[in-house]
Design a protein around this nucleic acid. Structure first.
Lengths: 224, 224
DNA sequence: TCGTAGAGATTGTTCAACAATCCTGCAATC
DNA sequence: GATTGCAGGATTGTTGAACAATCTCTACGA
């Protein structure tokens, strides 16, 4: 029966891509605005305002608030409203605690380590340097973010990647709260490339150490 | 002005413990039932049923579903309903990928490492052994869970602890899907104590190795 | 056996309403 | 002058009902 082979093949596809629910769409719009900086930390998100702006009902808006609150991108204060999160110093420390645990571990022990991913990491590190040479600070920032996303991907775990995505989103908020000189990221370009080289050379343990140093340094620069 | 000192003192308190919203309460009830096994994997959660059972409106129920879905304890299939999640083999692999990354890293590099936490770890490991001696498999399971929760706590990060909590909740579902001999956990009691001893002796690196081995073993037992 | 059509049930979403709570401004008090 | 007490208005929390969209199941016919 060629039915079996078909069944097996289809079973790979995880039951279709379910069209996003209204709440998820609203969540996506708000998330983008928060991450891209149109909605700055502390901004209040009134249900009525969003209702009028996006044309969804209040209930739907509220459901999307629940999602964003779970991602820690907004804070809900009962009977007062929801506000775009403003990371505190303690949040920053916690975010770096997560990263310092996750990223070096992924580099040293991640199961997705291989020529393909490492290749992408090397590429994006080089891309960051080019952006810097072109005087494109936003390009630098973007490359840096992808770099760390890929480091997280080394773990080879969906859940870790999701977590990393959330952490990086929160980091965007951090940079909007803490004043950083324009090229905060530029300072780390060389180290990115160095780490990429170590990974390419199979020196995962040393790459891991470098990452820990790197993240320590970044944290104290942000907090100092 | 003693006003200032008061202001500073109160600012420590993070704006009161906000009474749980209805959706959060529903979420808590459902989460407990799922974790404790009253609601087994695959069970369908009809909005109407929950509405009648708990006395909250449909909208509130839906908001709580959104929360549980974010925790991966339930799966939402559009226009079909929400179901208690049934972890697949791939989910199990992913969960162990997370744990194998997180727990050893927390043991080796976590910043909350200290006599207090290590003491608790030693205690709960011993407690597991006693439960086993008393022929109390549920006590063993519980001790084991706390053991790993504490390992995660070594990271010293709120976000990591939350993640660990979620992972352990999912693990409860795993054990309900995969048939395990009654004392699956009992097999690991000695290793728990050994790891606890290593931590107490300051041999964090070796504890980390042991944990990796341990988790590898557990995973293959579950999948094999 | 297969395909189709239709009825019934469930979810997705909206709307309107009300209670509970918060915020603002102003008067009363010390 | 500063603090407290108190309406009045605005916003959130929650509910109930309604309707469209979609799924499931059954029955029927080719």
């Amino acid at each position: 029966m060629s039915n079996d082979v078909l069944a097996v093949a289809l079973r790979q596809t995880p039951r279709a891509m379910p069209r996003l629910s209204a709440a998820q769409q609203v969540g996506k719009v708000l998330r983008d605005h928060i991450i891209n900086g149109q909605l700055t930390p502390g901004t209040r998100l009134t249900e009525e305002t969003i209702t009028e702006a996006l044309g969804y009902s209040r209930n739907t808006i509220r459901e999307s608030f629940a999602l964003l609150a779970a991602e820690r991108l907004v804070v809900r204060e009962t009977n007062r409203g929801v506000f775009v999160a403003t990371p505190s110093r303690s949040d920053i420390r916690d975010l770096y605690a997560v990263r310092r645990l996750l990223e070096p571990a992924a580099a040293e022990h991640g199961t997705a380590y291989g020529p393909e991913l490492v290749g992408q990491i090397v590429d994006v590190a080089a891309q960051g340097r080019r952006a810097h040479a072109d005087g494109d600070p936003d390009g630098v920032r973007q490359a840096n973010q992808v770099f760390h996303r890929l480091i997280g991907a080394l773990a080879g775990s969906r859940r870790v990647s999701d977590l990393m995505e959330g952490v990086l989103a929160e980091m965007r908020l951090v940079f909007r709260v803490v004043a950083t000189d324009g090229d905060f990221h530029a300072h780390f370009l060389e180290r990115n490339e160095h780490i990429a080289e170590l990974l390419a050379a199979g020196e995962r343990s040393r790459a891991s150490e470098q990452l820990r140093d790197y993240l320590d340094d970044a944290e104290s620069r942000l907090l100092g």
